[in-house]
Design a protein around this nucleic acid. Sequence first.
DNA 1: ATACTATACCTCACAGTTCGATGCATTGCA
DNA 2: TGCAATGCATCGAACTGTGAGGTATAGTAT
Lengths: 121, 121
Amino acid sequence: MAARETNPNFMNGVPELLILRLLQQEEMYGYEIVQAIRSRTGAVITIGEGAVYPVLHGLEHDGALASSRKTVNGRSRIYYSVTHAGSSRLADLAEAWTHLTAAIQTILTGGQHGEAIQRTS
Amino acid sequence: MAARETNPNFMNGVPELLILRLLQQEEMYGYEIVQAIRSRTGAVITIGEGAVYPVLHGLEHDGALASSRKTVNGRSRIYYSVTHAGSSRLADLAEAWTHLTAAIQTILTGGQHGEAIQRTS
DNA sequence: ATACTATACCTCACAGTTCGATGCATTGCA
DNA sequence: TGCAATGCATCGAACTGTGAGGTATAGTAT
């Protein structure tokens, strides 16, 4: 936890951020989340199951998510939903993400000259 | 290099991106870069020397940076500047970064409902 | 029936990164 | 002479995601 003292290691929590946000919009299960992230980002971002499940478990352990096992068509699925604590966590992560991207943007745009970055190819 | 096949591990190249951009604007030396990143981002981002020097060396090795040793006030400094190849690399990284943040933004804003994320605290 | 694919859960070893500490050398100041 | 700041550089510890692998059920094609 504690997200390191200095930087949140930059993207430390991106998977967590995306997962929380997705679940806040709609209750989902692990396998579904993996596909949702891939399809909604046009495959730009792909978070594998090996990364999703551990996050899900950790988040539930921290009380940010609540799970309920449901059987659909004989398939057992574990649906996760965001708790009150989870919403706070999402808000914190979203805010951190905003600060981070803003900071990077500041350097990318060169502060005030506003030079555009051109492709040389 | 090759930037992995799937995701560029998300931020894989943020330090590289920032350093290249900084050097493209102005010739700098390692120690100066560390402080520049910290100050220009309002301490939101801090990339330690342990991360900066390896990037500098790797980039130079790849021909993206050129170095020149200069002595100022008896202090020996190694100034780095971006080469043509380095500019291409910067453009690529900047583009990847743009795609990545756009993708994340898509999920954060919930696609089309445009729900805002509110702090619950 | 049997095979194969998709669904659905989960875990682990490996690779790649960054952090923080540390070491060395020189300059300026008290 | 002692101490702080500057400046370069490297190393080990810790963290994270990838990719592969494992289990099991349902549906579809052969």
